[in-house]
Design a protein around this nucleic acid. Structure first.
Length: 635
DNA sequence: ATAGGGTTAG
């Protein structure tokens, strides 16, 4: 079964709406088969309308004449007209270059069905014909026919070339079909193309996007020569799998080998910085971009907004946003989301009308961003209003993510019954994330009975997300129900799930330091623990009481405290305090959500050490200053 | 004549 991750056949109501206002001639079709509109078919080439015809030229037997005609074609009718001429005068049959060009022009116009019927009657085919046809199907997301055609190509006995393979490998990536990918990898070997930079780059990319980072790395390391694209693919691969550190290191290595990055490479690196939250690196990358004089187009600009925001620098993100001449829905959504996860809900909401005024239409992601902005800032009424206007005013259908936002919003605000009502009344299919959000709200408000209801649905869905189990177990632990904690742990073992390891990063002197719980691997470990001990002594004097509810296991108090003291967040902060001068803000990034005790701890540290501490966790940003956090303790 | 890498949420 093919899974379509990157492309969707379904058009939103809005897109359909837009389609109509753009071209009233298109008739209404079932949204499920809407994609058929790409596949414009011309059934009878003799019934062409004369007003769409290209100017009649004297009959010619020169293929070059028709090739240049094809280049002038503006629409499908014109193409079919040329097609008819060359078919009638017999040129098409005997001229492969002409047939291939015609094929190519059809594909360019997404008329893949026409291309395929031409392809079917071509008596002679060369690698170019096959490549255009395989690429044509991929272009309209008809992956099944893409693979079928590729298989015919292989079976035809014709020699495979390094043009078709990258196309079909990309199709594997886009369908997340790693098994097909491995199969084609074998074909690559069979035809001796395993050193071709185009083919190998495509393979590396395919493996990486399908989650097989080790295969990707192995291929990349073995490449005899790596060009810019191979480097870019590998840099993106590391960022994709969460190893942004390695990704940035690879960028440095690439430049050491005198490969000059282009704009696409920079977008990839910008993305890695965003994932990492590496503020200093982000600054360097920004400098580099200006030095290289890359223009701030809509993609680079949007990526940079995202990078600055995720590095905790909202002002710079806004500066880029204001500087951009062209903004699309992604640009606006990125900025809205940025305000949202920094807890600035009002600012996020204020952007929305400006976006509409500028003529950019919102999509479902825009609404997810808006609703989360409300949630992080506790703007319940505003959120409800937006949720209700999505379809009516903006033709964007509510999906399960939007319901999840609402559950989160209502749940945090303590309106759990309303959240539950929403869940029970919704007509879209419920997923793990939705129940997870409800469970999260139950944890905040200690609603055990409701938590068990949510958990039941969650476990029925065979959730593979260890975070959900940990959340439930934490709820039980908080209530002192250790047998239930043990049951959950057992279930996790049974389902072969492990608690995701928590990591915290801190960037000091252009180097990224990573900590895990109880970490002793850092060179300054001794100093870090000494600092932590001192800190906790001071904190306790100031009234800090460790909250052992956030320790998962049922162990005795003292041991619990020991584990709590060495949470990765605390280690990173202790290290930050030692290694930076007084008054410097500390920025740390955590891959999971910050634990409740660490949250309290950091509030105290911000007051006692007089530091601004900016924490990015899996959900949002926390700005700690003078003993308080910008999240208002809802996170 | 045909080819590979890039942007928003969760």
């Amino acid at each position: 079964m093919l899974k379509f991750k990157r492309h969707s056949f379904l058009l939103s109501a809005h897109e359909i709406h837009r389609l109509f206002s753009a071209s009233p001639a298109i008739s209404l079709v079932d949204p499920i088969t809407q994609h058929q509109t790409h596949l414009q078919t011309t059934t009878n080439i003799n019934t062409l309308q004369s007003e769409t015809s290209i100017p009649q030229s004297p009959p010619s037997l020169d293929p070059k004449h028709y090739i240049s005609q094809l280049f002038k074609c503006r629409n499908l009718n014109q193409i079919t007209q040329v097609h008819a001429q060359v078919a009638v005068n017999g040129l098409l049959l005997h001229n492969l270059a002409l047939a291939n060009k015609l094929l190519y022009i059809y594909v360019q116009h997404k008329a893949v069905i026409d291309a395929h019927s031409l392809f079917g009657v071509m008596t002679e085919k060369d690698p170019v014909s096959w490549s255009v046809m395989v690429g044509g199907f991929a272009r309209v997301c008809d992956y099944l026919n893409c693979f079928v055609t590729f298989r015919e190509y292989v079976r035809s006995g014709e020699c495979l070339d390094n043009y078709t393979l990258p196309l079909v490998i990309r199709a594997c990536r886009d369908t997340m079909d790693i098994n097909m990918g491995r199969l084609i990898h074998h074909v690559v070997h069979k035809f001796g193309l395993h050193s071709d930079p185009f083919v190998v780059a495509a393979l590396v990319d395919m493996y990486a996007k399908c989650g097989a980072i080790d295969d990707a790395k192995q291929l990349f390391d073995k490449m005899p020569e790596r060009d810019l694209v191979s480097w870019t693919v590998m840099i993106g691969a590391y960022a994709e799998c969460g190893n942004a550190n390695e990704s940035l290191a690879l960028f440095d290595r690439m430049r050491e080998e005198d490969v000059i990055p282009d704009k696409v490479a920079m977008v990839t690196v910008v993305n890695a910085c965003a994932k990492m939250g590496a503020m200093h690196k982000a600054g360097l990358v920004n400098e580099y971009i200006w030095r290289m004089n890359f223009s701030l187009d809509v993609i680079l600009g949007s990526a940079m907004i995202d990078m600055y925001a995720k590095c905790g620098n909202l002002d710079s993100a806004r500066e880029i946003f204001d500087k951009m001449r062209e903004k699309n829905v992604i640009t606006w959504s990125a900025m809205i989301a940025a305000y949202g996860y920094h807890g600035k809900g009002r600012e996020a909401l204020e952007l929305f009308p400006s976006m509409l005024t500028s003529g950019v239409l919102p999509n479902r992601i825009t609404f997810v961003s808006l609703l989360y902005a409300c949630s992080h800032a506790g703007l319940v009424d505003e959120g409800l209003r937006i949720f209700n206007s999505m379809w009516e005013d903006h033709f964007v259908r509510r999906d399960v993510k939007h319901y999840t936002c609402m559950v989160d919003l209502l749940g945090r605000a303590g309106r759990l019954n309303e959240a539950l009502n929403l869940v029970e009344d919704m007509s879209v299919e419920k997923d793990e994330g939705l129940w997870g959000a409800l469970l999260g709200a139950c944890r905040i408000h200690n609603r055990i009975e409701l938590a068990e209801k949510a958990a039941k649905s969650l476990l029925e869905l065979q959730s593979q997300n260890p975070g959900h189990y940990v959340l439930l177990s934490n709820i039980y632990a908080k209530a002192g129900r250790w047998e239930d904690v043990a049951k959950i742990r057992e279930l996790m073992t049974h389902r072969r799930l492990k608690k995701n390891p928590g990591w915290t990063w801190i960037e000091v002197d252009n180097k990224i330091h990573r900590f895990s719980v109880g970490d002793h691997t850092h060179g300054w470990s001794k100093e870090i623990y000494k600092m932590l001990e001192m800190l906790i002594e001071k904190l306790e004097l100031a009234g800090y009481v460790p909250d052992t509810n956030f320790v998962l296991h049922d162990v005795d108090e003292e041991l619990k405290q020991g584990m709590l003291y060495s949470h990765s967040e605390k280690l990173a902060i202790a290290f930050g305090l030692i290694s930076t001068s007084e008054g410097t803000p500390l920025r740390i990034t955590k891959n999971l959500r910050v634990c409740g005790d660490c949250h309290t701890f950091i509030k105290f540290v911000s007051a006692i050490a007089k530091r601004l501490i900016i924490v990015r966790d899996a959900n949002r940003f926390h700005h700690f200053e003078e003993g308080a956090c910008s999240c208002g303790d809802y996170w």
